[in-house]
């Protein structure tokens, strides 16, 4: 008797759900807050994608939440699941481990899950993974260094906040420059921060009489590095390679600044790709599940104009 009641209830729910869903489906978007340049750009593109898609798909509703740390992000996702009845979740995890459980709970509730940039600790939870290529970011950077310094030379390397992302980038870079005659004098964490990188570069300049080039690995860090070099009046440094494609730096590459000959992309707009693909998946029969890797591309003076986004804050 009990069994039939449950079955009946389930059947009612199963019949009712699609009928309700035809009115509006809610897509939850959970991302880290804009605490540094790249995240700021990512927030901008997320907001823009949400605004645009709400116009395009009247049947979709979006909830955008930004979290200042992993714990807050877990709360956001739990709230979305409990109160907004989301049909899909697009999440750029702050950290992989703490977010794995809550995102798994969303997947088990039957909602579509799209994970962006950082993977979860357990494989197979997400329906769609839109990934940045951190190892490739390091490889492309390293290959550019090798081509720009055919005779080799001494460089210093700036690392980001100690994370898996940073480790993968540096590993890719080291593999690419191996055996090329490029010698890494020192590596230090500039934490993707201008001020930290400025002071670290000042100290590198005191420590080493001759530095041929700098892999700043990020445009915020490159700005700090360039300011320190300029203040010290040193002319032994031939160039600084940043990364992630901040628009001011792309503009300098485009305009032929010899100190910034290139950039390597790690586009914050990947969040827009993820939201867009999720919307397509919910509203059409086009298959979008799987893994979508957004490659890191080398930007030089020739193609820099294509990578300059005038409206973006990053």
């Amino acid at each position: 008797m009990k069994f039939t009641t449950v079955t009946a209830a389930a059947m009612v729910a199963a019949l009712a759900a699609p009928a309700w869903a035809q009115d509006t489906k809610v897509i939850g978007v959970s991302i880290p807050a804009a605490t540094h340049g790249w995240a700021g750009g990512m927030n901008f593109h997320a907001q823009e994608a949400v605004d645009r898609l709400e116009e395009v798909y009247p049947g979709l509703d979006f909830v955008l939440a930004t979290a200042s740390d992993a714990a807050k992000q877990v709360d956001d996702i739990e709230d979305m699941l409990a109160t907004r009845n989301i049909s899909a979740l697009v999440v750029l995890p702050f950290e992989s481990e703490p977010l794995t459980g809550p995102v798994q709970a969303v997947a088990e509730s039957g909602a579509w899950v799209t994970v962006v940039d950082r993977g979860l600790a357990v494989e197979g939870i997400e329906d769609l993974y839109v990934a940045g290529d951190n190892s490739g970011f390091g490889t492309v950077s390293g290959e550019f260094m090798v081509s720009a310094m055919p005779e080799g030379g001494d460089i210093v390397v700036f690392r980001g906040i100690p994370t898996t992302i940073d480790n993968e980038r540096v590993a890719g870079f080291e593999a690419a420059i191996e055996g090329s005659g490029i010698n890494v004098l020192a590596m230090e964490h500039g934490n993707w921060n201008r001020d930290d990188s400025f002071t670290v570069m000042e100290d590198f300049l005191s420590k080493y009489d001759k530095i041929d080039a700098v892999w700043a690995s990020d445009d915020d860090m490159a700005i700090g590095v360039l300011a320190a070099i300029e203040a010290a009046g040193r002319d032994d440094i031939q160039f600084v390679l940043g990364g992630a494609g901040m628009k001011e730096m792309i503009a300098r590459t485009r305009d032929g600044d010899a100190m910034i000959p290139a950039n390597v992309t790690y586009p914050p707009a990947m969040i827009a790709t993820a939201i867009e693909m999720t919307a397509v998946g919910l509203t059409s029969t086009a298959p979008v599940s799987g893994t979508f890797v957004i490659g890191s591309v080398l930007v030089t003076q020739e193609n820099a104009a294509e990578f300059y986004y005038a409206d973006s804050p990053f």
Partner: peptide, 11 residues
Amino acid sequence: VTWLADGGTLS
């Protein structure tokens, strides 16, 4: 300051 900078950087 985050709001003034639109999440990015004020230069």
